[in-house]
Design a protein around this nucleic acid. Structure first.
Lengths: 163, 163
DNA sequence: GAAAAAAGTTAGCCCTGGGTAACTTAATTG
DNA sequence: CAATTAAGTTACCCAGGGCTAACTTTTTTC
């Protein structure tokens, strides 16, 4: 059993996971629309996932993840979410762009980088206070938006004026 | 003239740029070794770059970027560098991994994200003082390395203890 | 300067992952 | 329940981008 998933296989897996209704079912058409590909592309991608035992699909019927497929999909989605939060909440990339970038980046990131990115997102979301934007991030966002030096800093000396 | 460069074309362009000696010349072999591909792959990639007027290459001879090719290569490399600095200096990804990740990520990032990432790197490298690690980054790096809450923060309250 | 080694090239293969056209099955509706 | 429409499928095709094997040219070296 070839356990390696291609990039596109991961996209399909994640999409099926996200589209599943309460009964865990979705449809070829849904997947095609979501990923912006044509139905035959979905069908052939699903054949591959089926062969690996990650998806169940009877002819002309619904799609369903196996439990193994669901585990993988959750993992893929977790990665995706971290990237999205980093891009959108920290860098300030607009939601739509962050979404598509996250989608493309998630396949090209090493485990080490992912782990550190998770820590980075966790760090900024947790300190100094949960769900409160840290001062430095606030400074950065102002800087990014206006090009202004951080408000509590003197540009010339680089010294903090608000000790 | 098809002006769009494929991902791999960008890699080749950047590699040629970085390998060029003082006379701006390099060799198929060099490129192949650097990108970890075989020579025939280089040859066919170069044919495409040649057709777009980005590279000059005579049979059995040296490779050289045209000025247009060099402009593009510099731009590609700038992107690469920003990513590397973000990954290595900010997140703390080890240099080797940061290098390969940067190489892979650079093709999958939107202009908006790149622009913000540049600002982010610039911000952390400039404030509060040029080339001095900001306090928050220091906190993050300790947190990433040890899992400890930032030293100047009380984890329970989230309040800063060192006002 | 001839023989060996290294570099470059060509031809042809393979896999990924998209697409269209044409067909079949299922669902909807008058 | 027959006709229409929508969904799913199949059989192709195409481009990107790598590879190997075999050949040619250039460079080295004895």
């Amino acid at each position: 059993m070839d356990s390696e998933l291609t990039h596109s296989a991961q996209d399909y897996l994640e999409a099926i996971f996200l589209l599943a209704d309460r009964q865990g079912l979705t449809r070829v058409k849904e997947v095609a629309d979501r990923l912006d590909v044509k139905k035959p592309s979905v069908v052939s991608a699903i054949k591959a996932l089926q062969k690996k035992g990650l998806v169940v699909h009877q002819h002309y019927g619904c799609l369903e993840l196996t439990s193994e497929g669901e585990e993988l999909a959750k993992d893929i989605h977790r990665r995706h979410q971290v990237l999205f939060r980093f891009l959108h909440h920290i860098l300030g990339v607009k939601a739509e762009t962050a979404e598509t970038d996250a989608c493309r980046l998630e396949h090209h990131i090493s485990p080490q980088t992912l782990a550190l990115l998770i820590k980075f997102v966790e760090f900024t979301e947790t300190y100094p206070e949960r769900d409160k934007t840290p001062k430095w991030l606030d400074s950065f966002q102002r800087f990014a938006a206006t090009g202004e030096a951080p408000p509590c800093l003197d540009r010339a000396s680089g010294e903090c004026r608000c000790k």
